[in-house]
Design a protein around this nucleic acid. Structure first.
Length: 197
DNA sequence: CGACCGATTGACT
DNA sequence: GTCAATCGGTCGG
């Protein structure tokens, strides 16, 4: 766990499909005060502008404008009147593409994540801590204030995956959408306990 | 302006 | 398996 470094801008300046696949196994890090949260990304979904399921499909609006920024920003949106979901923006400025972070395997800051999620301290089913996009946001404390944050900064960023971490990648239809169900744009790590059901 | 519904979750039959 | 919670975005009149 030593030679870990922040993913560079170029990593994000590619299509959402490429970035989605390569995000598996990377470490999502959030620093807040003296606390640090981190988790390995184990499940993602790609959303592209030409895709009817994407927020960016009908063009740029106040809500989705972060999706159109240069790759390497965080797009956080509010949904169902109570949940936030977070995405990694990809591609060049002006392209409305992003990758939804659906699940992570928690690594650091687990006690604080449990607190954020309203878990009792003795709760043992830790897969339920971060096995869903809104659960990840609640655990990491992502909300409106984190929308648009640059992932090359020091508050929220991604770290390249360990070369020793070997896993099989599976892909499937995306979850919770109707339009675009035929596209297999959900990627996840085979057998990982934190992949959503 | 009103109606509909969503890239979800957790509680419950 | 079903369904309510809860509110901002989007679209039709």
């Amino acid at each position: 766990m030593s030679a870990l470094r922040k993913l560079p801008r170029e990593f994000y300046l590619r299509s959402a499909l490429q970035v989605a696949r390569d995000l598996l196994g990377t470490l999502l890090v959030r620093r807040i005060g003296k606390n640090q949260f981190s988790g390995k990304i184990v499940e993602v979904e790609a959303y592209r502008q030409t895709d009817p399921a994407s927020h960016s499909f009908r063009g740029r609006t106040r809500r989705n404008e972060v999706m159109f920024q240069e790759g390497g920003h965080l797009y956080v949106y509010f949904t169902y009147g109570m949940h936030f979901c977070s995405n990694v923006v990809t591609g060049k400025e002006g392209n409305g593409e992003a990758v939804l972070i659906r699940a992570v395997e928690p690594i650091e800051g687990i006690e604080r994540m449990m607190e954020n999620r309203g878990f009792d301290v003795d709760r043992k089913d830790l897969q339920n801590l971060t096995n869903g996009p809104a659960k990840v946001c609640q655990a990491f404390g992502f909300g409106r204030a984190q929308n648009g944050i640059d992932l090359l900064g020091d508050e929220i960023f991604l770290v390249g995956r360990s070369k020793r971490d070997h896993f099989d990648v599976c892909r499937s239809s995306r979850i919770g959408i109707q339009n675009g169900i035929e596209k297999k744009w959900r990627f996840f790590i085979k057998g990982n306990l934190w992949v959503s059901k």
